[in-house]
């Protein structure tokens, strides 16, 4: 799913109680919503709870949506606010054990799985790096669009994105990665 492909008419139809529009909206955005929540909260259970609350909020707040061509940014803002509310209220788990086993078992092997890469991202990246890399990977949003959502300069987003990927490459390849990671 590319964020730019999300049709904002779905939200307008949801505002009128269109269940099919909600289903389509869910199908197109569920991974993005969950991934973004996971990148902030680092916990599967918390991310799922926020995902649930976010879709409820989106459906019930669809009437307040003003078409501006950025439906994904609207949804991600809902997710971000819910996550930070949750963090502020202290209602979060602090473990990332869910993916720990996969990564540990892979460390001794020459290969690495998707799940282990996700685990590494959750483990070694800081909060902003996780969010930026996740949004870039899952939504296909451009750096400047991510910058708008994250409310930070585009240059900072780019910088953090590049730094995050360099850290990931270093961790996953075990050789520092620079000068090699991008090559076949």
């Amino acid at each position: 799913m590319h964020a730019a492909d999300l049709d904002e008419n779905l939200i307008l139809l949801m505002a009128n109680g269109d269940g099919n529009a909600f289903t389509e909206f869910y199908n197109q955005t569920s991974s993005i919503v969950y991934g973004f929540a996971l990148s902030i909260l680092r916990n599967k259970q918390d991310a799922e709870d926020v995902m649930h609350d976010a879709f409820i909020k989106a459906y019930t707040s669809a009437v307040t949506y003003r078409p501006m061509g950025k439906p994904m940014a609207w949804m991600l803002t809902i997710v971000k606010n819910l996550c930070y509310n949750r963090i502020r209220s202290g209602r979060i788990f602090e473990d990332i054990d869910e993916y720990e086993d996969a990564a540990v078992s892979d460390e001794l092997q020459d290969t690495v799985t998707d799940k282990a890469i996700l685990q590494q991202a959750l483990k070694i990246l800081d909060a902003e790096e996780r969010q930026i890399v996740t949004l870039y990977s899952v939504t296909g949003l451009k750096h400047r669009e991510i910058a708008e959502i994250m409310e930070m300069p585009t240059g900072t987003v780019l910088s953090k994105y590049n730094r995050a990927l360099a850290k990931m490459r270093k961790e996953l390849t075990g050789d520092g990665g620079k000068g090699k990671g991008g090559r076949k």
């Binding site: 991974s31 996971l38 020459d110 799940k115 991202a121 990977s137 990927l165 490459r169 990671g181």
Partner: peptide, 26 residues
């Protein structure tokens, strides 16, 4: 393979892992 990890693989892999682990709560 670890020695083939590129930026593209990392971002694609993250997207796939998140897609696979997204719960179905519809």
């Amino acid at each position: 393979n670890r020695d083939e990890i590129t930026n593209e693989i990392i971002t694609k892999s993250l997207a796939d892992a998140i897609e696979d682990s997204t719960p179905d709560i519809l």
